[in-house]
Every structure is written in structure tokens, then in C-alpha cells.
């Protein structure tokens, strides 16, 4: 499974509990939709650390890096080098 697909699965299953949505467009604005709120961001950061062994430093916690699934995917690819 690709990084984008795994992140999408995590977002749908963990950050959108109670919702009937089963998939998200990878360009959907997660911040605007309130999916990645402060609590969601912390869960997402833990997921990236555990799944891809990526430590997310303060300076990387920008809306640009977490706005969409595509942006998170690009961030992971960059950090993995």
C-alpha cells in the first residue's frame, strides 16, 4: 500500500470516527474540514513516527505539510529522503 493510501486509511479510521465517509480525495483540505485539529495533528504525528520512523520537528508542523493527504505524502517522502 502506498504512503498516501496508508495515511488516508489512518485519517478515515482514526480521525473521522463516527463518520460514514470511507475515502478522501488526496487534495481535500483536511484543515479547512476540521479533520486535522490539534488533537488530530498529535495523532497524525504519532502515526508518522511509529509507521515511518519520522520525527516531526516543530518547524515541520506547518499547515502546508498537513493540509492534504498529498501534502502529508510529500512530507513523508522528503523526510525519508
Amino acid at each position: 500500500m502506498s504512503v498516501a493510501a496508508e495515511v488516508e486509511q489512518f485519517v478515515v479510521q482514526q480521525l473521522m470516527t463516527g463518520s460514514t465517509i470511507t475515502s478522501i480525495d488526496h487534495d481535500e483540505d483536511l484543515l479547512g474540514a476540521g479533520v486535522v485539529d490539534s488533537h488530530g495533528l498529535m495523532q497524525l504525528v504519532s502515526f508518522l513516527r511509529e509507521r515511518y520512523e519520522i520525527a516531526v520537528p516543530d518547524e515541520a508542523l506547518t499547515p502546508e505539510n498537513f493540509q492534504t493527504i498529498a501534502a502529508i505524502d510529500a512530507f513523508v517522502q522528503r523526510e525519508r529522503g
Binding site: L31, D37, S38, L41, D58, L61, P63
Partner: peptide
């Protein structure tokens, strides 16, 4: 407090 900083920033 990263969570609070995120809330304020967004």
C-alpha cells in the same frame, strides 16, 4: 504545547 500552538495558528 504543540497541540495548543496548532489550534492558535490554524
Amino acid at each position: 504545547n504543540r497541540a495548543a500552538r496548532w489550534t492558535y495558528a490554524t
